[in-house]
Design a protein around this nucleic acid. Structure first.
Length: 481
RNA sequence: CGGGAUGUAGCUCAGAUGGCUAGAGCGCACGCUUUGGGAGCGUGAGGCCGUGGGUUCAAGUCCCACCAUCCCGACCA
């Protein structure tokens, strides 16, 4: 009874979303416009994302480093499209130490320019390549409108920046980075994604090509979950950052570069994808607490069994919370675990001890299982794995149900007016059609899906749904977050 | 930056046509009784009624300005 009344997810997802975040203490608005405080419950999710993704990046040979938060404006100006893309959303420091600065400093909206200034100093020979660095940091983009996790003025992310001797090698890194994201998002966050390349219009400011992983939210809007860019030689050329080196033949060459990032935005996707009308639901591999253990009564035997289980689970590397405060009723504690999105809650009381079974409550599908007390830790581990799989399957099923292939613009409009979701449609790749579709339906191109890990796309014969011109690519459209 | 709305207790909100000591529910603290789905009763703490100005004998209430926040658009990860 009287649990905090959440707006049902299907009624108003945006209200639901904000309420879940407050209820679960993930974040709060900060006393700075557009900024949020990430509270421990939210930050621990981010730490787990870090712990899952960081080794995947290290496997690609990427090492972590740290570059300054301040970027002299002159550096940002070196790549024309880059500055053009970011200047409207820069925060700029004009004073320091009580004096007006001779050169104003931007707070980084992304670190290409500071990092590549250094890359230019460090790269002289083909032997210095590849240079593969990443940083976990904060960036600031002065957006007009903000939304918890999805769009805040300051956000946390990881940005990897690599420089290579050849374009082939760089392109492989673009794909490897994207695969690392897909791997992490699907296997840890249990969110299915579509990877592909962005249209010219949606390409990152300063890149020659942008690849993306796109997730679909239950309300039928798409969320860009991570991007990986082929920067070509746009930043390395002599007129920009001059990342030049001598190749094996002694000729001067310019580095081929990539950059890729994944932000705290993904936590928004996590909340929306799995949450339900009772609040947050987290997949086990990312949940700060994987198992909550609740004693139903205060008795020596019950306490003993609980503590033993807690110990065993900890030994198996499972993150547990022992909710033993009996001044809170069992119901209160069950709700508490539920609100935190804890994947599995184990209740142990006299009833359980008499039957030599534990009651295991599974959050995401609201079911209950009884588990032998003997070797319960192993059974629980298995259940957690099943939960992880089931949550992914459920999300995948939802994504498929919300994906429609259309042949005509009328069908396209129809889908956008009803269920939205991903729409697969032929597009001639001209910006005029892309803009017109967006204006008339709110849908934008999300990507041209890859059909394999090497970034291949399928070629088919068709006609553009907007202009009717013959074309060969079926693009993925959706209204974007 | 355009359109709409809202600022009263920690939270959600009520305070109609101005009127006496500003209220409720939830939450919080304490006590007793409870403990298998947010328990019950009692007591209590907690308010520059967003800010500034104006009208008036009298303003939470009316007028003006400002500030802040939220929602919807355009910009964006």
């Amino acid at each position: 009874m009287a649990k905090n009344q959440l707006t049902p997810k299907t009624v108003d997802m945006s209200k639901w979303y904000t309420q879940v975040i407050y209820q679960s203490c993930l974040a709060d608005y900060a006393p700075v416009k557009g900024c949020m405080v990430i509270r421990p419950n939210g930050y621990e999710i981010w730490e787990n994302i870090h712990d899952a993704l960081d080794p995947l990046l290290k496997n690609l040979g990427i090492r972590n480093a740290y570059f300054p938060i301040f970027i002299p404006l002159s550096l940002l100006n070196k790549e024309a499209k880059h500055i053009e893309g970011f200047s409207p959303e820069l925060a700029i420091v004009t004073h320091g130490g009580g004096e007006e600065l001779k050169e104003k400093l931007a707070i980084r909206p992304t670190s290409e320019t500071v990092m590549y200034t250094m890359y230019s100093k460090w790269v002289h020979s083909y032997r210095d390549l590849p240079l593969l660095l990443n940083q976990w940091n904060n960036v600031v983009r002065w957006e007009k409108r903000t939304y918890f996790f999805l769009r805040t003025t300051e956000f946390l992310w990881q940005e990897a920046h690599t420089a290579h001797a050849t374009h082939e090698e760089a392109w492989q890194m673009v794909l490897d980075g994207l695969s690392a994201y897909k791997n992490m998002v699907e296997n840890y966050l249990a969110i299915p994604v579509i990877s592909g390349k962005k249209s010219a219009h949606e390409t990152f400011a300063g890149a020659t090509l942008t690849t993306t992983i796109e997730a679909l939210m239950p309300d039928g809007k798409a969320l860009q979950a991570g991007t990986s860019h082929d920067l070509g030689q746009n930043f390395s050329q002599k007129t920009a950052f001059d990342i030049a080196f001598q190749d094996q033949k002694g000729n001067t060459a310019y580095a081929w570069q990539t950059s890729f990032g994944l932000s705290t935005r993904i936590i928004g996707a996590l909340i929306m994808t799995h949450g339900d009308d009772d609040g947050l639901v987290l997949p086990p591999r990312i949940a700060p607490i994987q198992v909550a253990i609740l004693p139903a009564q205060e008795s020596e035997v019950v306490t003993h069994v609980c503590e033993k289980l807690a110990e065993d689970l900890k030994k198996s590397g499972i993150r547990i919370a022992y909710l033993s405060d009996l001044t809170h009723s069992l119901g209160w504690r069950l709700n508490e675990a539920e609100i935190q999105g804890t994947p599995l809650t184990v209740v142990i009381g006299e009833r359980e001890l008499a039957a030599k079974k534990l009651t295991a409550k599974i959050r995401h599908n609201r079911t209950e299982e009884t588990v032998n007390i003997e070797n319960a830790d192993r059974t629980i581990q298995r259940i957690l794995e099943t939960i992880q799989e089931d949550m992914y399957k459920k999300a995948l099923k939802n994504m498929k149900e919300l994906t429609t292939e259309v042949q005509t613009f009328e069908e396209f409009e129809q889908v956008m007016k009803s269920k939205r979701g991903f729409i697969k449609a032929f597009w001639c790749e001209q910006e005029s059609c892309e803009t017109a579709i967006k204006r008339e339906t709110k849908a934008t191109t999300r990507c041209l899906p890859f059909i394999n890990e090497r970034g291949a796309v399928s070629e088919e014969k068709g006609v553009c749904i907007k202009c009717g011109k013959e074309c060969t690519h079926r693009w993925l459209f959706a209204q974007a977050y």
